[in-house]
Design a protein around this nucleic acid. Sequence first.
DNA 1: TCTGGGGTCCTGAAACGA
DNA 2: TCTGTCGTTTCAGGACCC
Length: 475
Amino acid sequence: MRTVLHVDLDAFYAAVEQRDKPSLRGKPVVVGGTAWRGVVATASYEARAFGVGSAMPTAAARRACPWAAYLSPRFGAYRAASARVMELLADLAGPPGLLEPLSLDEAYVDLSGSSSGPEDEAVLAAAVAFRERVREQVGLTASVGIGTSKLVAKVASDLRKPDALLVVPAGAERSVLAPLGVRALPGVGPATEARLAALGVSTVGQLAGTDERELVSVLGRAAGTALHAAALGVDPRPVVPEREAKSVSAEETFPTDVVDRAVLAGELRRMAGRVAERLLASGVRGRTVTVKARRYDFTALARSATAPGGAGVATAEEIAAAAAPLLAAIDATGGLRLLGVGVSGLVGALDALEDPVQGDLLADLLPDPPEPSPLEALPAASSPQEGGGEQDEDAGAGGVPAAPDVPPAAVSVPAPVVWRPGQDVVHVEHGAGWVQGSGVGRVTVRFEGPRTGVGRVRTFAVDDADLAAAGPPVW
DNA sequence: TCTGGGGTCCTGAAACGA
DNA sequence: TCTGTCGTTTCAGGACCC
Protein backbone atom coordinates (compact mmCIF):
# COMPACT_ATOMS: atom_id res chain seq x y z
CA MET A 1 0.00 0.00 0.00
CA ARG A 2 1.51 3.33 -1.05
CA THR A 3 1.20 6.50 0.97
CA VAL A 4 1.90 9.70 -0.93
CA LEU A 5 1.63 13.19 0.51
CA HIS A 6 1.30 16.33 -1.62
CA VAL A 7 2.08 19.77 -0.23
CA ASP A 8 1.00 23.03 -1.83
CA LEU A 9 1.84 26.40 -0.25
CA ASP A 10 -1.23 28.63 -0.46
CA ALA A 11 -1.02 31.65 -2.81
CA PHE A 12 2.70 31.34 -2.33
CA TYR A 13 4.23 34.54 -3.79
CA ALA A 14 1.45 36.72 -2.40
CA ALA A 15 1.65 35.00 0.99
CA VAL A 16 5.39 35.69 1.26
CA GLU A 17 4.75 39.36 0.45
CA GLN A 18 2.03 39.56 3.11
CA ARG A 19 4.31 37.83 5.61
CA ASP A 20 7.17 40.28 4.95
CA LYS A 21 5.01 43.43 4.72
CA PRO A 22 2.49 43.51 7.58
CA SER A 23 0.62 46.43 5.97
CA LEU A 24 -0.49 44.07 3.19
CA ARG A 25 -2.03 41.43 5.47
CA GLY A 26 -5.73 40.94 4.95
CA LYS A 27 -5.61 43.02 1.76
CA PRO A 28 -5.72 42.06 -1.91
CA VAL A 29 -2.18 41.47 -3.21
CA VAL A 30 -1.29 40.62 -6.79
CA VAL A 31 2.21 39.44 -7.75
CA GLY A 32 3.26 39.26 -11.36
CA GLY A 33 4.29 41.27 -14.37
CA THR A 34 3.48 44.88 -13.62
CA ALA A 35 4.30 46.00 -17.17
CA TRP A 36 1.64 46.73 -19.73
CA ARG A 37 1.83 43.22 -21.21
CA GLY A 38 2.24 41.41 -17.89
CA VAL A 39 0.12 38.65 -16.38
CA VAL A 40 -0.70 37.67 -12.82
CA ALA A 41 1.51 35.01 -11.25
CA THR A 42 -0.25 34.78 -7.90
CA ALA A 43 -3.19 36.61 -6.33
CA SER A 44 -3.88 36.57 -2.59
CA TYR A 45 -7.20 35.07 -1.57
CA GLU A 46 -8.44 38.60 -0.82
CA ALA A 47 -7.76 39.50 -4.48
CA ARG A 48 -9.29 36.26 -5.76
CA ALA A 49 -12.56 37.36 -4.13
CA PHE A 50 -12.66 40.11 -6.77
CA GLY A 51 -12.13 37.69 -9.62
CA VAL A 52 -8.36 38.11 -9.96
CA GLY A 53 -6.58 34.85 -10.74
CA SER A 54 -3.36 33.37 -12.07
CA ALA A 55 -2.54 33.89 -15.76
CA MET A 56 -4.95 36.81 -15.99
CA PRO A 57 -3.51 39.82 -17.85
CA THR A 58 -2.41 42.44 -15.34
CA ALA A 59 -4.45 45.04 -17.19
CA ALA A 60 -7.61 42.98 -16.64
CA ALA A 61 -6.71 42.43 -12.99
CA ARG A 62 -6.30 46.17 -12.48
CA ARG A 63 -9.77 46.73 -13.87
CA ALA A 64 -11.28 44.02 -11.67
CA CYS A 65 -9.49 45.11 -8.49
CA PRO A 66 -7.85 48.54 -8.84
CA TRP A 67 -7.27 48.88 -5.09
CA ALA A 68 -5.03 45.81 -4.81
CA ALA A 69 -1.27 46.09 -4.25
CA TYR A 70 0.50 45.15 -7.53
CA LEU A 71 4.00 43.83 -6.91
CA SER A 72 6.86 42.50 -9.02
CA PRO A 73 8.10 39.06 -7.92
CA ARG A 74 11.02 38.84 -5.44
CA PHE A 75 12.33 35.41 -6.35
CA GLY A 76 15.14 35.54 -3.81
CA ALA A 77 12.63 35.75 -0.97
CA TYR A 78 10.50 32.98 -2.48
CA ARG A 79 13.48 30.67 -2.95
CA ALA A 80 14.54 31.19 0.67
CA ALA A 81 11.04 30.43 2.00
CA SER A 82 10.77 27.41 -0.28
CA ALA A 83 14.12 26.04 0.87
CA ARG A 84 13.00 26.25 4.50
CA VAL A 85 9.75 24.38 3.76
CA MET A 86 11.65 21.72 1.79
CA GLU A 87 13.92 21.20 4.83
CA LEU A 88 10.86 20.56 6.98
CA LEU A 89 9.54 18.19 4.32
CA ALA A 90 12.86 16.34 4.23
CA ASP A 91 12.49 15.80 7.99
CA LEU A 92 9.02 14.42 7.33
CA ALA A 93 10.33 12.11 4.59
CA GLY A 94 12.92 10.65 6.97
CA PRO A 95 16.05 8.70 6.00
CA PRO A 96 14.60 7.23 2.75
CA GLY A 97 14.37 10.83 1.57
CA LEU A 98 11.66 10.25 -1.02
CA LEU A 99 10.94 13.95 -1.55
CA GLU A 100 10.16 15.32 -5.03
CA PRO A 101 9.94 19.11 -5.32
CA LEU A 102 7.76 20.14 -8.29
CA SER A 103 8.29 23.87 -8.04
CA LEU A 104 9.03 26.45 -5.35
CA ASP A 105 5.66 25.88 -3.71
CA GLU A 106 4.80 22.21 -4.36
CA ALA A 107 6.27 18.82 -3.52
CA TYR A 108 5.46 15.13 -3.14
CA VAL A 109 6.67 12.91 -0.31
CA ASP A 110 6.45 9.10 -0.39
CA LEU A 111 5.76 7.77 3.11
CA SER A 112 5.04 4.18 2.06
CA GLY A 113 8.07 2.86 3.92
CA SER A 114 6.99 4.21 7.29
CA SER A 115 3.23 3.73 7.17
CA SER A 116 0.52 1.20 6.53
CA GLY A 117 -1.51 3.50 4.25
CA PRO A 118 -2.94 7.00 3.90
CA GLU A 119 -5.21 6.61 6.92
CA ASP A 120 -2.35 5.57 9.20
CA GLU A 121 -2.60 7.58 12.46
CA ALA A 122 1.14 8.27 12.44
CA VAL A 123 0.95 9.80 8.95
CA LEU A 124 -1.90 12.05 9.99
CA ALA A 125 -0.02 13.19 13.10
CA ALA A 126 3.14 13.88 11.07
CA ALA A 127 1.19 15.92 8.51
CA VAL A 128 -0.50 17.97 11.21
CA ALA A 129 2.85 18.65 12.88
CA PHE A 130 4.42 19.60 9.53
CA ARG A 131 1.72 22.16 8.77
CA GLU A 132 2.14 23.61 12.26
CA ARG A 133 5.91 23.95 11.76
CA VAL A 134 5.43 25.68 8.40
CA ARG A 135 3.11 28.16 10.07
CA GLU A 136 5.41 28.82 13.05
CA GLN A 137 8.83 28.67 11.42
CA VAL A 138 8.16 29.99 7.92
CA GLY A 139 5.05 32.07 8.50
CA LEU A 140 3.04 30.47 5.68
CA THR A 141 0.07 28.13 5.35
CA ALA A 142 0.20 24.89 3.44
CA SER A 143 -2.49 22.63 2.02
CA VAL A 144 -1.75 18.93 2.28
CA GLY A 145 -3.35 15.96 0.57
CA ILE A 146 -2.64 12.32 1.39
CA GLY A 147 -3.57 9.33 -0.75
CA THR A 148 -2.38 6.12 -2.34
CA SER A 149 -0.83 7.87 -5.38
CA LYS A 150 0.52 11.20 -6.56
CA LEU A 151 -2.69 11.90 -8.42
CA VAL A 152 -4.98 11.31 -5.46
CA ALA A 153 -2.71 13.25 -3.09
CA LYS A 154 -2.61 16.23 -5.41
CA VAL A 155 -6.33 16.29 -6.06
CA ALA A 156 -6.88 15.99 -2.29
CA SER A 157 -4.65 18.98 -1.52
CA ASP A 158 -6.51 21.06 -4.11
CA LEU A 159 -9.93 20.07 -2.84
CA ARG A 160 -10.06 21.96 0.47
CA LYS A 161 -7.41 24.62 0.06
CA PRO A 162 -6.37 27.00 1.48
CA ASP A 163 -4.87 25.89 4.79
CA ALA A 164 -6.35 22.40 4.80
CA LEU A 165 -5.46 18.75 5.25
CA LEU A 166 -7.40 16.04 3.45
CA VAL A 167 -6.82 12.28 3.60
CA VAL A 168 -8.30 9.96 0.96
CA PRO A 169 -8.32 6.46 2.49
CA ALA A 170 -7.32 3.51 0.36
CA GLY A 171 -10.34 2.28 -1.56
CA ALA A 172 -12.11 5.66 -1.47
CA GLU A 173 -10.29 7.08 -4.50
CA ARG A 174 -13.01 6.56 -7.08
CA SER A 175 -15.83 7.89 -4.93
CA VAL A 176 -13.84 11.02 -4.07
CA LEU A 177 -12.89 11.68 -7.69
CA ALA A 178 -16.18 10.79 -9.40
CA PRO A 179 -18.20 13.97 -8.67
CA LEU A 180 -15.34 16.32 -9.61
CA GLY A 181 -15.15 18.10 -12.94
CA VAL A 182 -12.56 16.74 -15.36
CA ARG A 183 -10.46 19.87 -14.87
CA ALA A 184 -9.68 18.62 -11.36
CA LEU A 185 -7.37 16.04 -12.93
CA PRO A 186 -3.82 17.24 -13.56
CA GLY A 187 -3.23 17.27 -17.30
CA VAL A 188 -6.72 18.37 -18.26
CA GLY A 189 -6.65 21.93 -19.56
CA PRO A 190 -9.07 23.92 -21.69
CA ALA A 191 -8.35 21.96 -24.89
CA THR A 192 -8.81 18.52 -23.33
CA GLU A 193 -11.86 19.69 -21.42
CA ALA A 194 -13.46 20.84 -24.69
CA ARG A 195 -12.70 17.54 -26.43
CA LEU A 196 -14.18 15.58 -23.55
CA ALA A 197 -17.24 17.83 -23.52
CA ALA A 198 -17.79 16.89 -27.16
CA LEU A 199 -18.02 13.28 -25.96
CA GLY A 200 -20.53 14.31 -23.33
CA VAL A 201 -17.97 13.86 -20.55
CA SER A 202 -17.74 16.59 -17.93
CA THR A 203 -17.08 14.76 -14.65
CA VAL A 204 -14.37 12.36 -13.58
CA GLY A 205 -17.03 9.73 -12.95
CA GLN A 206 -18.23 9.98 -16.55
CA LEU A 207 -14.61 9.80 -17.69
CA ALA A 208 -14.12 6.58 -15.73
CA GLY A 209 -17.18 5.12 -17.45
CA THR A 210 -15.97 6.02 -20.94
CA ASP A 211 -14.40 3.35 -23.11
CA GLU A 212 -10.62 3.76 -23.04
CA ARG A 213 -10.36 3.18 -26.78
CA GLU A 214 -12.68 6.09 -27.41
CA LEU A 215 -10.52 8.34 -25.23
CA VAL A 216 -7.39 7.20 -27.06
CA SER A 217 -9.00 7.97 -30.39
CA VAL A 218 -9.83 11.50 -29.26
CA LEU A 219 -6.87 12.40 -27.04
CA GLY A 220 -4.06 10.21 -28.35
CA ARG A 221 -2.54 7.16 -26.78
CA ALA A 222 -0.59 8.68 -23.89
CA ALA A 223 -3.22 11.12 -22.70
CA GLY A 224 -6.11 8.74 -23.37
CA THR A 225 -4.78 5.82 -21.36
CA ALA A 226 -3.35 8.01 -18.57
CA LEU A 227 -6.58 9.96 -18.10
CA HIS A 228 -8.72 6.86 -18.11
CA ALA A 229 -6.51 5.34 -15.42
CA ALA A 230 -6.52 8.60 -13.48
CA ALA A 231 -10.31 8.71 -13.50
CA LEU A 232 -10.24 5.29 -11.85
CA GLY A 233 -7.82 6.61 -9.22
CA VAL A 234 -4.91 4.67 -10.70
CA ASP A 235 -1.56 6.47 -10.98
CA PRO A 236 1.60 4.31 -10.83
CA ARG A 237 4.08 7.20 -11.18
CA PRO A 238 6.73 6.93 -8.45
CA VAL A 239 7.99 9.80 -6.33
CA VAL A 240 11.34 10.67 -7.90
CA PRO A 241 13.76 12.56 -5.63
CA GLU A 242 16.13 14.04 -8.20
CA ARG A 243 15.08 15.29 -11.58
CA GLU A 244 17.70 16.85 -13.81
CA ALA A 245 16.75 19.76 -16.03
CA LYS A 246 16.25 18.77 -19.67
CA SER A 247 16.41 22.21 -21.19
CA VAL A 248 17.35 25.78 -20.34
CA SER A 249 15.76 28.75 -22.04
CA ALA A 250 15.18 32.49 -21.85
CA GLU A 251 12.45 34.45 -23.55
CA GLU A 252 11.01 37.92 -23.46
CA THR A 253 7.87 39.68 -24.53
CA PHE A 254 8.69 43.10 -25.96
CA PRO A 255 6.78 46.18 -24.78
CA THR A 256 5.85 46.74 -28.44
CA ASP A 257 6.18 44.38 -31.41
CA VAL A 258 9.63 44.42 -33.05
CA VAL A 259 10.15 44.28 -36.82
CA ASP A 260 13.78 45.43 -37.03
CA ARG A 261 16.02 42.41 -37.63
CA ALA A 262 19.04 44.13 -36.08
CA VAL A 263 17.10 44.71 -32.86
CA LEU A 264 15.90 41.10 -32.85
CA ALA A 265 19.45 39.83 -33.37
CA GLY A 266 20.66 41.97 -30.48
CA GLU A 267 17.91 40.68 -28.19
CA LEU A 268 18.74 37.13 -29.20
CA ARG A 269 22.41 37.60 -28.29
CA ARG A 270 21.43 39.06 -24.92
CA MET A 271 19.16 36.07 -24.16
CA ALA A 272 21.87 33.66 -25.35
CA GLY A 273 24.05 35.21 -22.66
CA ARG A 274 21.43 34.54 -19.98
CA VAL A 275 21.09 30.90 -21.07
CA ALA A 276 24.87 30.47 -21.21
CA GLU A 277 25.26 31.78 -17.66
CA ARG A 278 22.90 29.11 -16.37
CA LEU A 279 24.42 26.34 -18.48
CA LEU A 280 27.91 27.19 -17.28
CA ALA A 281 26.75 27.46 -13.66
CA SER A 282 25.42 23.90 -13.80
CA GLY A 283 28.36 22.64 -15.83
CA VAL A 284 26.35 21.26 -18.74
CA ARG A 285 26.34 21.68 -22.50
CA GLY A 286 23.45 21.25 -24.90
CA ARG A 287 23.11 19.77 -28.38
CA THR A 288 19.90 21.36 -29.66
CA VAL A 289 19.29 25.09 -29.95
CA THR A 290 15.73 26.34 -30.39
CA VAL A 291 14.58 29.82 -31.31
CA LYS A 292 11.01 30.56 -30.33
CA ALA A 293 8.91 33.48 -31.50
CA ARG A 294 5.40 34.78 -31.11
CA ARG A 295 4.16 36.96 -33.92
CA TYR A 296 2.07 40.13 -33.68
CA ASP A 297 -1.07 38.00 -34.15
CA PHE A 298 -0.03 35.66 -31.32
CA THR A 299 0.79 32.70 -33.55
CA ALA A 300 3.76 30.83 -32.11
CA LEU A 301 6.56 29.20 -33.99
CA ALA A 302 9.86 27.56 -33.20
CA ARG A 303 12.93 26.67 -35.24
CA SER A 304 15.55 24.31 -33.91
CA ALA A 305 18.78 22.71 -35.00
CA THR A 306 20.89 19.97 -33.47
CA ALA A 307 24.63 20.25 -33.52
CA PRO A 308 26.35 17.26 -35.11
CA GLY A 309 28.75 15.32 -32.91
CA GLY A 310 28.89 15.31 -29.13
CA ALA A 311 30.42 18.69 -28.31
CA GLY A 312 27.29 20.85 -28.28
CA VAL A 313 27.04 24.46 -27.18
CA ALA A 314 27.43 26.22 -23.84
CA THR A 315 28.89 29.70 -24.27
CA ALA A 316 26.91 32.78 -25.28
CA GLU A 317 28.86 32.99 -28.51
CA GLU A 318 28.18 29.36 -29.43
CA ILE A 319 24.47 29.65 -28.66
CA ALA A 320 24.11 32.94 -30.50
CA ALA A 321 25.96 31.54 -33.52
CA ALA A 322 23.66 28.52 -33.67
CA ALA A 323 20.56 30.66 -33.12
CA ALA A 324 21.27 33.34 -35.72
CA PRO A 325 20.35 31.27 -38.82
CA LEU A 326 17.26 29.98 -37.01
CA LEU A 327 16.10 33.53 -36.37
CA ALA A 328 16.81 34.36 -40.02
CA ALA A 329 14.42 31.55 -41.03
CA ILE A 330 11.56 33.14 -39.08
CA ASP A 331 9.18 35.44 -40.90
CA ALA A 332 9.05 38.62 -38.81
CA THR A 333 6.75 40.49 -41.16
CA GLY A 334 4.29 42.42 -39.05
CA GLY A 335 6.56 42.19 -36.03
CA LEU A 336 7.36 39.79 -33.22
CA ARG A 337 5.91 40.28 -29.75
CA LEU A 338 8.09 37.60 -28.15
CA LEU A 339 11.48 36.11 -28.83
CA GLY A 340 13.28 33.37 -26.95
CA VAL A 341 16.19 30.99 -27.22
CA GLY A 342 16.68 27.65 -25.50
CA VAL A 343 19.11 24.79 -25.33
CA SER A 344 18.09 21.14 -24.85
CA GLY A 345 19.69 17.72 -25.12
CA LEU A 346 21.77 18.59 -22.08
CA VAL A 347 24.83 16.56 -21.18
CA GLY A 348 27.52 17.05 -18.54
CA ALA A 349 30.55 18.87 -19.85
CA LEU A 350 32.69 15.74 -19.35
CA ASP A 351 30.14 13.49 -21.07
CA ALA A 352 30.15 15.80 -24.07
CA LEU A 353 33.84 15.17 -24.59
CA GLU A 354 33.44 11.44 -24.74
CA ASP A 355 32.91 9.60 -27.97
CA PRO A 356 29.14 9.13 -28.27
CA VAL A 357 29.67 5.96 -30.28
CA GLN A 358 31.09 4.17 -27.28
CA GLY A 359 27.72 3.70 -25.69
CA ASP A 360 26.44 1.92 -28.79
CA LEU A 361 29.45 -0.40 -28.87
CA LEU A 362 28.83 -1.29 -25.27
CA ALA A 363 25.19 -1.99 -25.99
CA ASP A 364 26.20 -4.31 -28.82
CA LEU A 365 28.46 -6.28 -26.52
CA LEU A 366 25.74 -6.83 -23.98
CA PRO A 367 23.45 -9.83 -24.44
CA ASP A 368 19.96 -9.08 -25.67
CA PRO A 369 17.17 -9.18 -23.11
CA PRO A 370 15.17 -12.38 -23.37
CA GLU A 371 11.94 -10.54 -24.25
CA PRO A 372 11.53 -10.47 -28.06
CA SER A 373 10.83 -7.11 -29.62
CA PRO A 374 7.23 -6.95 -30.72
CA LEU A 375 8.33 -4.91 -33.69
CA GLU A 376 10.60 -7.59 -35.07
CA ALA A 377 7.77 -10.05 -34.76
CA LEU A 378 5.18 -7.94 -36.50
CA PRO A 379 4.15 -8.92 -40.00
CA ALA A 380 3.81 -6.01 -42.38
CA ALA A 381 0.45 -4.71 -43.49
CA SER A 382 1.42 -5.46 -47.06
CA SER A 383 0.57 -9.10 -46.42
CA PRO A 384 -3.03 -8.73 -45.44
CA GLN A 385 -4.10 -12.21 -46.37
CA GLU A 386 -1.66 -14.03 -44.16
CA GLY A 387 -3.45 -13.15 -40.96
CA GLY A 388 -6.81 -14.31 -42.13
CA GLY A 389 -9.69 -15.09 -39.84
CA GLU A 390 -11.27 -12.89 -37.26
CA GLN A 391 -9.32 -10.34 -35.28
CA ASP A 392 -9.30 -10.59 -31.53
CA GLU A 393 -7.88 -7.40 -30.18
CA ASP A 394 -7.48 -8.52 -26.59
CA ALA A 395 -6.32 -12.08 -26.78
CA GLY A 396 -5.12 -11.94 -30.36
CA ALA A 397 -5.42 -15.69 -30.77
CA GLY A 398 -4.49 -16.36 -34.37
CA GLY A 399 -4.37 -12.66 -35.18
CA VAL A 400 -0.60 -12.43 -35.58
CA PRO A 401 0.50 -15.60 -37.33
CA ALA A 402 4.15 -14.64 -37.77
CA ALA A 403 4.68 -14.37 -34.02
CA PRO A 404 2.22 -16.45 -32.06
CA ASP A 405 4.33 -16.03 -28.94
CA VAL A 406 3.88 -12.26 -28.89
CA PRO A 407 0.39 -11.27 -27.84
CA PRO A 408 -0.93 -8.23 -29.70
CA ALA A 409 -1.79 -6.75 -26.32
CA ALA A 410 1.94 -5.98 -25.99
CA VAL A 411 1.60 -3.52 -28.84
CA SER A 412 -0.52 -0.44 -28.67
CA VAL A 413 -1.40 1.38 -31.84
CA PRO A 414 -2.29 5.05 -31.61
CA ALA A 415 -5.49 5.77 -33.39
CA PRO A 416 -6.50 7.02 -35.74
CA VAL A 417 -3.48 7.10 -37.99
CA VAL A 418 -4.34 8.97 -41.13
CA TRP A 419 -2.23 9.28 -44.23
CA ARG A 420 -3.08 11.53 -47.12
CA PRO A 421 -1.04 11.44 -50.31
CA GLY A 422 -2.93 13.86 -52.48
CA GLN A 423 -6.55 12.86 -52.51
CA ASP A 424 -6.05 9.34 -51.25
CA VAL A 425 -6.66 8.40 -47.66
CA VAL A 426 -5.44 5.38 -45.75
CA HIS A 427 -7.07 5.20 -42.37
CA VAL A 428 -5.80 2.77 -39.75
CA GLU A 429 -8.30 2.28 -36.98
CA HIS A 430 -7.38 1.58 -33.41
CA GLY A 431 -6.18 -1.88 -32.49
CA ALA A 432 -5.57 -4.58 -34.99
CA GLY A 433 -6.19 -2.34 -37.94
CA TRP A 434 -8.15 -1.60 -41.04
CA VAL A 435 -7.14 -0.07 -44.28
CA GLN A 436 -9.93 1.83 -45.93
CA GLY A 437 -10.41 4.00 -48.95
CA SER A 438 -7.89 4.04 -51.75
CA GLY A 439 -4.23 4.86 -51.75
CA VAL A 440 -0.77 3.42 -52.01
CA GLY A 441 2.21 4.44 -49.97
CA ARG A 442 3.75 4.38 -46.53
CA VAL A 443 2.14 4.54 -43.13
CA THR A 444 4.20 5.24 -40.03
CA VAL A 445 2.95 3.91 -36.72
CA ARG A 446 4.45 4.56 -33.31
CA PHE A 447 4.57 1.52 -31.04
CA GLU A 448 5.11 0.76 -27.42
CA GLY A 449 6.73 -2.48 -26.37
CA PRO A 450 8.27 -4.04 -23.26
CA ARG A 451 11.78 -3.87 -24.67
CA THR A 452 11.54 -1.07 -27.14
CA GLY A 453 9.75 1.33 -24.84
CA VAL A 454 7.58 4.14 -26.09
CA GLY A 455 8.23 5.93 -29.30
CA ARG A 456 9.47 3.28 -31.68
CA VAL A 457 8.21 3.83 -35.16
CA ARG A 458 7.41 1.27 -37.78
CA THR A 459 6.86 2.33 -41.34
CA PHE A 460 5.21 -0.07 -43.73
CA ALA A 461 3.94 -0.02 -47.25
CA VAL A 462 0.34 -0.24 -48.35
CA ASP A 463 -0.08 -1.38 -51.93
CA ASP A 464 -2.92 -2.08 -54.35
CA ALA A 465 -3.10 -5.69 -53.21
CA ASP A 466 -3.90 -4.55 -49.67
CA LEU A 467 -6.67 -2.35 -50.83
CA ALA A 468 -8.12 -4.96 -53.16
CA ALA A 469 -7.96 -7.62 -50.49
CA ALA A 470 -11.14 -8.83 -48.98
CA GLY A 471 -11.24 -8.23 -45.25
CA PRO A 472 -9.00 -6.06 -43.16
CA PRO A 473 -5.25 -6.54 -43.09
CA VAL A 474 -3.98 -7.82 -39.77
CA TRP A 475 -0.66 -6.78 -38.21
C1' DT B 1 -9.54 39.26 -20.36
C1' DC B 2 -6.29 39.41 -24.51
C1' DT B 3 -3.04 36.62 -23.12
C1' DG B 4 4.47 36.05 -19.05
C1' DG B 5 8.26 32.98 -18.39
C1' DG B 6 10.26 28.65 -17.72
C1' DG B 7 9.61 24.28 -18.12
C1' DT B 8 7.73 19.04 -19.47
C1' DC B 9 5.71 15.66 -22.39
C1' DC B 10 3.47 14.02 -26.52
C1' DT B 11 2.70 13.49 -31.48
C1' DG B 12 3.07 13.44 -36.61
C1' DA B 13 6.01 14.20 -40.40
C1' DA B 14 10.14 13.94 -42.65
C1' DA B 15 14.96 13.09 -43.14
C1' DC B 16 18.50 9.91 -42.57
C1' DG B 17 21.00 5.74 -42.85
C1' DA B 18 21.84 0.74 -42.85
C1' DT C 1 24.65 -0.05 -58.45
C1' DC C 2 20.01 0.83 -57.63
C1' DT C 3 15.93 0.61 -55.04
C1' DG C 4 12.79 -0.48 -51.50
C1' DT C 5 12.39 -1.35 -46.58
C1' DC C 6 12.36 -0.04 -42.08
C1' DG C 7 14.29 1.63 -37.64
C1' DT C 8 16.16 5.99 -35.69
C1' DT C 9 16.54 10.74 -35.13
C1' DT C 10 15.20 15.32 -35.75
C1' DC C 11 11.96 18.95 -36.23
C1' DA C 12 7.83 21.62 -35.31
C1' DG C 13 3.89 22.40 -32.88
C1' DG C 14 0.33 21.67 -29.27
C1' DA C 15 -1.16 21.13 -24.56
C1' DC C 16 -0.30 21.59 -20.03
C1' DC C 17 1.72 23.02 -15.44
C1' DC C 18 3.24 26.39 -11.83
